[in-house]
Amino acid sequence: MKDFEYHPAATVDEAVSLLSAHGERARILAGGTDLLVQLREGMREADLVLDVKKISELARLDYAPATGLTLGSTTPCYQIYNDKTLTAAYSALADAAHIIGGWQIQSRASIGGNLCNSSPAADSIPALICLGAIAHIAGPDGRRQVPVSEFCTGPGKNALKRGELLVALQFPASAKHSGSHYRRFIPRNEMDIAVVGVGSWVRLNAAGDKIEEARIALGAVAPTPLLATEAAASLVGKAPTEANFTAAGELARKIAKPISDMRGPAEYRVHLVGVLVQRTLAEAVTRAKKNV
């Protein structure tokens, strides 16, 4: 690993000024489970590694049933799935947090870091998108908000400009009769990169026999995670049936533009989109029916 300077920032302002001064030569360190590997393998270089874990605003975790969740960007994965309330309210996020690496990785890896690494196959991003999460960003020009569905701009690229950092992720309150699920396909049981990953969120009517609202997000089938708008819209007003889930899966397949690589050929990935949309919707509906 090439040598670098290390600085633990104490405040958002301090981090922003250092990031502004160093630009691309500064890299933000949260859990480090991606960054240190990239630095060692020469995929990224840094003159300054800026540790942001000591910034209290980035470590906060505020949840209230009425207002929703504000998740500091350095919150590690384990903290989400260890919390029963959060797991119930934002199930898809807990699903993703539970399968990012092994549990040693989950002790350190942060959801914010997974988003900012902006891998097309990142597990947390379809979950964040289907849950309607919003990225809170601080930078030299002040604060701004970007929906996570618009955050990623390409493999390893995102909306963060020079001097900016991700402060927190904000989630809307978990509505009654809503449920979500993230699932990926991998050829192993654990510790692998998604061949395809899908996050689905639904809100049912009180009787549980009609879908009022839905969001579906696809991972690993395009340069960025995708919001499957048409597929989700097709479900509104429909009964939560296997046939309707399959139809939504057919629509989602249309927007998938995957590459062929060692994890699977493009046709296979398109097929998996249909399967995973159907299965994640079925599980999201099951969870929604329990959420009364």
Partner: peptide
């Protein structure tokens, strides 16, 4: 084990 949590020591900085 760091502060009760299992971690991978090869992806963790000593200064951290």
């Amino acid at each position: 084990i760091v502060d009760g949590k299992p971690i991978a020591a090869n992806t963790t900085l000593a200064l951290d």
